[in-house]
Design a protein around this nucleic acid. Structure first.
Lengths: 209, 209
DNA sequence: TGTATTGAGTGATATTTATCACAATGGCGT
DNA sequence: ACGCCATTGTGATAAATATCACTCAATACA
């Protein structure tokens, strides 16, 4: 069970009553690494606040394609689930657990209520939207202006920042995240290896740059 | 000069005190069609709320490229300018006046203050971020998954929704917005003409689909 | 220990988009 | 009416990316 102290560490700057409301109303849930936590088109029933682990957020295509947008870390929340005034609001994003996850699920009926009740919740929602908006801007910048080699580099750097210099991803997984093909990723990584930017192993490689 | 009644029409759902604060503190400014209202990297000194006209928001590249993201209409605000707690916050977007514009410029020192003071302002900021976030999701979707022909179609449809079936843009302007070349746009438009989707004139064309 | 499976390497080719070069057209000002 | 200039049309070619068809290597596991 989560204590108030633990909550304070993960979500600082909240007011007292908010911690108590969370402890009372939110359900602490778990998700295994690799699980899909939220699908596109799915009805949103609760807000999702990450307590432990890393979540990846995607834009999903009609025919199965996925496009990686950004990570969610402990203390962060899935923006789209935070403001669902109307019933049957559908998710525009796909969320997947990268690691084993602990998260707080708060039924959406509290969202409107808490916006009124807790100033610190209000700020939290705004901060969340602002930072997610900025992440999207970066994603658009890469996608709109850069070729695949630069996009791959950006992708790897983001991964390194999250998880360190050892990248445990197959070329296929990277290709999926970038919505390109495995062959393209393989060839570009080979080029990076020639340049001395990475050292490749099976199922993983090291970022040296 | 703006009256409180006029403000109420453009920005409904605000509380009384907020209208008065706006009338007191905001400056009603104008911008000519074609003007750049906010550049990337520029220090943000005031929030921008559109009163009259249409603004286009872009992501800007280091070497001059522009990528169109979405429109701002009367009653809408530039999200990035709404939450600038810290001084010297720099714009991540480029804003251009499409038509002649009237807008409210509110010095950023009021942003923090009004978040505390006016609940309806708080809601306005959240609504703004939410809707802009959703626009960005659409933009990413098109950019990441679609080829140029579909992206062009999406672009035209958005334009039609804004301004009607007559599109008064040169091929070059469209190409700039999509970060492609004029030749590509010309050829794709020609294809659409063959398909009977558009009727082309000089400097303009009609959307028939 | 052999065998199946998954991940990676790579050539050949197709498709999409970008770039270059130049011609044709139409509108606008003088 | 003429000429200029912005706009559009279009072929040729290059570059980037996607797709197909394999091979080869590693490791999982029976």
């Amino acid at each position: 069970m989560l204590t108030k102290e633990a909550l304070k560490n993960i979500f600082p700057d909240w007011e007292d009553g908010l911690y108590e409301a969370i402890l009372k109303e939110a359900e602490l849930k778990e998700a295994k690494a690799g699980t899909t936590m939220l699908k596109m088109g799915q009805n949103i029933k609760s807000a999702m606040l990450v307590v432990e682990g890393t979540v990846k957020l995607y834009q999903e295509d009609e025919d199965g394609g996925e496009y990686f947008m950004y990570h969610l870390n402990p203390g962060e929340a899935c923006a789209v689930t935070l403001v669902c005034n109307y019933h049957h609001e559908q998710s525009q994003v796909l969320a997947k657990a990268v690691t084993d996850i602990q998260y707080l699920a708060i039924p959406i009926e509290f969202m409107e209520k808490w916006l009124n009740e807790f100033k610190s919740w209000h700020y939290f929602v705004i901060r969340t939207y602002r930072s997610r908006y900025e992440e999207l801007l970066k994603t658009i910048h890469e996608t709109a202006f850069k070729n695949m080699d630069e996009r791959l580099e950006f992708y790897i750097k983001r991964h390194v920042k999250q998880f360190g210099k050892t990248i445990n991803l197959t070329h296929q997984e990277i290709a999926n995240d970038l919505n390109t093909s495995r062959e393209v990723v393989s060839r570009l990584l080979k080029k990076m290896e020639h340049n001395g930017w990475i050292i490749m192993n099976r199922n993983a490689f090291e970022w040296m740059k």
